[in-house]
Design a protein around this nucleic acid. Sequence first.
DNA 1: GGAGACAAAAAGTCAGACTTATTCGTCACG
DNA 2: CGTGACGAATAAGTCTGACTTTTTGTCTCC
Lengths: 233, 233
Amino acid sequence: MSTPGRGLHGHVLDTLGPEITAGEYPPGSVLRTDELAQRFDVSRSVMREAVRVLESMHLVESRRRVGVTVRPMSEWNVYDPQVIRWRLAGKDRARQLRSLTVLRSAIEPVAAGLAARHATSQQCAELTECALGMVANSRGHKLEEYLVHDMAFHRVILDASGNEMFARLGDVVAEVLAGRTHHDVMFEDPDPAAVTLHVQVAEAVRAGDAVRAEELTREITVGALQELDILAP
Amino acid sequence: MSTPGRGLHGHVLDTLGPEITAGEYPPGSVLRTDELAQRFDVSRSVMREAVRVLESMHLVESRRRVGVTVRPMSEWNVYDPQVIRWRLAGKDRARQLRSLTVLRSAIEPVAAGLAARHATSQQCAELTECALGMVANSRGHKLEEYLVHDMAFHRVILDASGNEMFARLGDVVAEVLAGRTHHDVMFEDPDPAAVTLHVQVAEAVRAGDAVRAEELTREITVGALQELDILAP
DNA sequence: GGAGACAAAAAGTCAGACTTATTCGTCACG
DNA sequence: CGTGACGAATAAGTCTGACTTTTTGTCTCC
């Protein structure tokens, strides 16, 4: 995605990471560095670097005389964008998408409220532009163009909140929106009500109306949650 | 903290990580693997493993013929518990604490609402126990004992929400609460109103009253935000 | 002054030997 | 029988040195 297989150790991670996050090795499973190096046909140095990265994500733990043991899912660094990507590409993408959508529903309304207070005039302009782009592509099976503007819209909101923790969720939200468009729901044109809400949020932010921006965004995320409930009650 | 200097590469990270997150190397600064290996008196293999970990946190980027370049703060994986710890131990701990408290104010109310729906009877019992422990230690300069129960309380709420993304913020919230007690505010006994709110949240969760649990928790987090505003308006 | 070739620099890779910590089995001792 | 200590096996950890690959800056040459 962002950094595709840069170097041999990257290629190893592209295979091993998804396998682990997909749960192919039950927690407590033991892998041996040497065997992995053989399997991927790389030197032990390269394999060790890959293991170190997995370890920094808390996916595995490396202990002397034991080997590389897989940690239970509850200990994974589930906010690591790489881990999120692996899991979204794997088996439990539905569960993952639900968790992330709930996260969105908590974060984005608050972020929109802050954005109404902190957004620069340029960010307001970008927001309006994105909302207009969504309107323009809301009919006629132009889902891809719509998605681009939708992702940009939410990224601007999160950035404009002025909170770095929120801002860093831009990639995650984009991934969720993309996943929704490309796989699960959204067979036809997007919900007109949602499009309108985005336009209204842009207006509220520009007007500096924090309460209204927060409430409108809450409606958007509630809608996203309902979409999931319809799909898998 | 959790995994203190495990192995040589861990020791290198314990020094280099805080240096980078403290901003001692401006974005775009170039480090050379060989020089770093010399500086820390380790072999290049060990140094490379450390660089790989820093790279997986998006703190640096390693490119051929160029070296290891430090990335701008906006690209760091700020949700990585290790990065959070490094930053909380460093220069901008105040800024970091503020960001995290805003994050809490978005997450915890929603988590409490979900907890009211999903908490098991055992989790309800734990919650009540924590709240009672907070009451018992709310007077008489027993800040440490109070803190333990406070951290446990919020961890149970986040776990009981049933959302893994929320659950994994337990460590972060604990870190924020600990930081608040040990450094910034909290010179004397905690605010009695806050203690009462925790007890009421425990009751609301046990009663399955999601709306009330959410609203009460919102009051708690608003209080935490106000504490910061009083300290640094 | 632009395009292409060349050289230097730094990360990337590999192989092999050695070190160290941990675990497990065994054996002696209570 | 249990128990504790000793020792051997094992797999990660470390170091070294040689080699490869990619990128970049420069220096021609047209």
